[in-house]
Design a protein around this nucleic acid. Structure first.
Lengths: 261, 261
DNA sequence: CGGGCTCTTGATCGCTCTCAACAATGGTGG
DNA sequence: CCACCATTGTTGAGAGCGATCAAGAGCCCG
C-alpha cells in the first residue's frame, strides 16, 4: 500500500494555549482518512455488503477478508467481475446504483462511508485525484479482464489470474511466491469464463509442468513466476529463465496483420 | 442526448453599461460546454487519436464518426474493448496514461480539451458529477462486456452487440430498427472474442431466422428486436411476441445452484 | 473491367464443456 | 478421538461449439 497515510486526527488540531507561530497549512484529508473516522463493521462469509442495482449509498473500505463481485444473468449464470481484498475500496458509484453484488467469501471487516460525505470530499482538490485514480484503476481492471476473456485460452487465463493475485498481494516479490486464494474453484471459473473442471485441469497441468504447487485448497506456490508470465502472454518468452521447464503452446501466435496507421 | 446544454458564452457575460439589477447567478459550465470553446479538428480513417500507454494529456469529444478502442497483446492479438460514436467523450484518464488506443474507423471530427483544464473543471460542483457519471458509464460498459465475453456463446454475443448498437444510437425506438455498423466484421470479431468467420456465420443464421437483414455491408435491419433480446439473454423469453420465429437454443440454461445468502 | 479487399460458406480439427465417477477435505455428532 | 457425511476438488471419456484452413462470392475503387 504505497499511499502515504497522514495522521487521522490532523484535521482536528489540539487547541494550543499560546500560538505565536503561523498556523501550519492544515493537512488535507486523504481518501482513506475519511474512512478512518468510521466505526468498524463485520460480515460473515456468504453475506452481501450490497446488491447489484441497489441504490449506492455507501462506499466501503475493506480492512480484512475477501469478497467476490458479480452479476447474475436472468438464466442463473454468474459472472464474477472481480474480487476485492483487504486494503481496497469498494462501491464507488456515482449514478445511483451499484454495478455488481459484493459478497463476502471469508469473514470481512470493513468501514462504511456515506455517499453524501464522499461526494462532498470530491470537492477537495486533494481527495478528488485519489478518488479519480481509484475509479480509473477499476476501469483498467475491467478492461484487462475484457482482454483476458476475449483473447486468452484457458491456460493463459489461469496464468493471468494467478499472476494478478500474486502482484495484488505483493507476493510476487518473495521467493518462492506464495499466494492465498480464499475463493473456491467455482469462483475462479466464473471469473475466468471457464468451467470448474477446466480450471482444475489447468491447475493440474501447471503442477505437472512444475509451475505450481498447492498446499491445501487455498494456498498456491508459484516456483517460477517468470514462466507463468510467458504463459499468460505478458512477455514474448525470448528469455527462457528456466530452460528445464517445457513450455508447450508458447504464446507465439501467427501474427495477424493489424492495420496500424 | 438528454443533457441540458447551457449557452456557451454564459461564463463571459457581456459588460453591461448600467447594472441596477443584482447579477443573476452565473450559469455553471456543463461538461460539454468546456469542449464547445475548443476548435474542431479532424482525423482520417485509420489514424489514432491517441495510443495506449501514451501520456493522457487530452480528453476528446467526438462530434462525428466512429472509433475503435483497443489493446494489442505482445503476440499481436487485438482486443477491441469498445467503440466510440459521435456525441461521446473519450480519453478521460486520471493516472497519466490512456488505457487503450483510439483509432478512427471512419473520418472523425472532434474537439480536444487539455487535461489541466479538465482537472480544474473537476473542482466545479456542477461539472464533477457529470464527469463522474461519464466515468461510471465507462466502468459499466466494461463490466457489461466482461459478462458478455465470460458467459455468453457466439450467438448471444452477436445479439448483445447488435442490441447495444441499436440502443446506443437510439435506433431501437424506430420500426424497423436500422443500425449503421461502420466497423468491419473483423472489428466486431475482435470485440466479441470471436473469429470473423463465426461472426459471419451468426449473421447468416440470424438472417435465416428472420431476425436480421443487411443492406450493403454496414447497414443492418433488425425486424424483431424483442426476439434478439431473448437471444441475448436479457429476457427470460416467457413472452413470445413473434411466435413465427423459431428460437432454438432459447437462453434457458440448467440453473446452476448459486449460493445466495 | 480488372485488382484487391472484405465478406461468406464449407470441411475439418481441437479446445473446452458436459456428464460421470471418484478422491480429498472439513465439519459434526456420537 | 474417530466415524460419518456433505461439500469441494480431481480426473476421465465423449460431445459440441467455435477455430482453423481453404475456396469462392461480393463490393469498392482506380
Amino acid at each position: 500500500m504505497p499511499s502515504l497515510r497522514t495522521v487521522p486526527s490532523a484535521h482536528r488540531p489540539a487547541p494550543r494555549p499560546v500560538a505565536p507561530l503561523p498556523a501550519p497549512p492544515p493537512v488535507p484529508p486523504a481518501l482513506e482518512d475519511l474512512f478512518s473516522l468510521q466505526p468498524i463493521e463485520s460480515s460473515a462469509a456468504g453475506t452481501a455488503l450490497f446488491w447489484e442495482e441497489d441504490a449506492a449509498d455507501h462506499a466501503f473500505q475493506i480492512l480484512e477478508g475477501c469478497l467476490r463481485l458479480y452479476s447474475i444473468l436472468p438464466d442463473g449464470r454468474r459472472a464474477i467481475t472481480g474480487f476485492a481484498f483487504s486494503g481496497e475500496i469498494l462501491g464507488l458509484s456515482f449514478r445511483g446504483a451499484y454495478p455488481y453484488t459484493a459478497e463476502a467469501i471469508t469473514g470481512v471487516r470493513f468501514r462504511r462511508l456515506g455517499q453524501g460525505r464522499l461526494a462532498a470530499a470530491g470537492g477537495s482538490d486533494v481527495v478528488r485525484p485519489q478518488l479519480l485514480a481509484r475509479i480509473y484503476d477499476e476501469i483498467c481492471a475491467a478492461q484487462r479482464l475484457v482482454v483476458i476473456l476475449g483473447q486468452l485460452n484457458a491456460e493463459e487465463r489461469v496464468a493471468s489470474f494467478l499472476l494478478s493475485a500474486a502482484v495484488r498481494t505483493g507476493a510476487d516479490r518473495a521467493n518462492p511466491v506464495a499466494i492465498e486464494l480464499p475463493m473456491s474453484r467455482l469462483d475462479v471459473a466464473d471469473h475466468l469464463g471457464l468451467t470448474i473442471e477446466t480450471v482444475c485441469r489447468v491447475f493440474s497441468k501447471l503442477k505437472r509442468d512444475g509451475l505450481l504447487r498447492t498446499e491445501g485448497r487455498h494456498r498456491v506456490l508459484l516456483p517460477c513466476i517468470q514462466a507463468l508470465r510467458v504463459l499468460a502472454g505478458e512477455e514474448s518468452g525470448t528469455t527462457p529463465s528456466q530452460p528445464n521447464v517445457s513450455v508447450r503452446h508458447a504464446a507465439v501466435w501467427p501474427q495477424r496483420p493489424v492495420f496500424v496507421s
